[in-house]
Nucleic acid binder design. Structure first.
Lengths: 250, 250
DNA sequence: CCGTCCGCTATTGTATACATAACGTATTCA
DNA sequence: TGAATACGTTATGTATACAATAGCGGACGG
């Protein structure tokens, strides 16, 4: 295949990984479906070696599952798997918040978080919130959580949280987006923002237990969100990760 | 290289992964040292493709770190990295214990844990405990923790705990072993065993919060253990994982 | 004598060829 | 007619060849 057009700007492995993840999250590959290497080679444009590396990485990431007889399939998740993942992430973020509070954080380090907080406040002033504003919210919320995680100053914990978030459905913000059309959406966002405010306050005052508790509560809110979103199946098309959920009849 | 002797019983990838992990944990490869693929090919007997797959997996496992310019190096950890990892694991196990308690566990499911508990009790009857008994203890303790994790019935959580334990130093039992010569060792084991007993009791009585709290306390005990072990550098040779700790002068 | 630049070498990233195992299909026998 | 076996095809596991890049050493110039 001499006419393969090679993009030298990023490694083929990374390119293949991104392309395959897109295919999985977009639902082009259904849960339980076997991923053919050859087919992946054609759709990603990389050759088999980088494709295989990408498949291994995606397996470690939790999106794929190794088939005993060889090869990989797209992993399928139950609703409980997902709510557990959210609670799991909240627990880890709680630990991060506690570490931050106990180990102390300078005002300078808290600055970016407060900016984030302010930007979200700005967005929430709109009632009802627009779809565009939702997108911004999702990005800002992700940034807030990432910054908070960093404050723990604990590389192993940060790494683990990244992993727990790598399963994209574990990101609470995604579920909120699914509910942008629900009347409860605004309330949920406001409550979530209050949690953000409290955790910063707790960290500033070095109240580790309080910082931890609020992040866990934050996750429980996200779980309630998920349940709500799944009951009211509005805007679910905005949530590609939900393509991974097993249907009840499976 | 036609004379390569191929062991067909396990895949070359797995073989290479195990061999490389051994080399890392045994200290044959020092922290910060770059791993040469070619060299790995020679020492593992696999060819470059499976070796590369193994390297990717070990990176995901946390033992290796990708070098920006290419290749991998052995990751180095600080003492705090390790104590954080222990606390991290304890937090996840706490969540598992809570899930088990809240979701309910049949007497039949608790049976293996109680057997484990009894076997450990048997071992602890020896004073002072022998090195052989320590090895048995380590195995039994690992089994107890694995069984407990399973009780959560939460695949995402079980997976995450496995990952947190994949960094072998995160396994509290390892550190206890390092202290087999310390006078405090016996006490520590007895206290740990008490924690095991309490968590089972809490799960039986469906006290989720208590089950969670005791597992976190258990991890804090392990952290104290680690500190003690590092102060009294006895039997550290029994702890290959400590080869990964950066020395203070690094 | 030191610094810089050029070229070489060694190592990784990528592609592909080969081996092997699994699955599906067709044919045959009971 | 149904089931079992054998064969063929297809896909994965493995090995190796090729390409490109980064790091190092030597040589030349200031």
């Amino acid at each position: 295949m001499a006419e393969r057009e090679v993009d030298r700007s990023v490694s083929q492995t990374v390119k293949a990984q991104l392309a395959l993840r897109d295919q999985i999250l977009s639902g082009a590959l259904r849960p339980g479906e076997r991923i053919s290497e050859l087919q992946a080679v054609e759709t990603t444009g990389a050759s088999r070696t980088p494709v295989r590396m990408a498949l291994v990485r995606l397996e470690e990431e939790g999106l794929l599952e190794a088939i005993p007889s060889g090869g990989f399939m797209v992993k399928a998740f139950s609703e409980r798997d997902i709510s557990d993942s959210i609670e799991l992430r909240g627990t880890l973020e709680g630990l991060a918040a506690r570490f931050a509070a106990e180990r102390g954080v300078s005002a300078r380090e808290l600055e970016p978080l407060k900016e984030c907080l302010g930007a979200i406040d700005e967005l929430l002033r709109q009632v009802p919130i627009s779809v565009d504003a939702f997108s911004s919210y999702v990005a800002l919320n992700a940034r807030f959580h990432a910054l908070l995680t960093e404050l723990s100053r604990s590389p192993p914990l940060i790494r683990q949280i990244d992993r727990a978030s790598a399963l994209p459905f574990a990101s609470p913000s995604g579920f909120v987006m699914a509910q942008s059309a629900l009347p409860e959406a605004q309330q949920i966002l406001i409550i979530g923002q209050e949690h953000h405010r409290v955790v910063i306050d707790a960290i500033e005052n070095r109240e580790g237990a309080r910082a931890e508790a609020i992040m866990r509560e934050h996750a429980r809110l996200a779980v309630r969100n998920l349940r709500l979103a799944l009951r009211n199946r509005t805007h679910l098309d905005l949530l590609p990760a939900l393509a991974l959920i097993k249907t009840a009849t499976d």
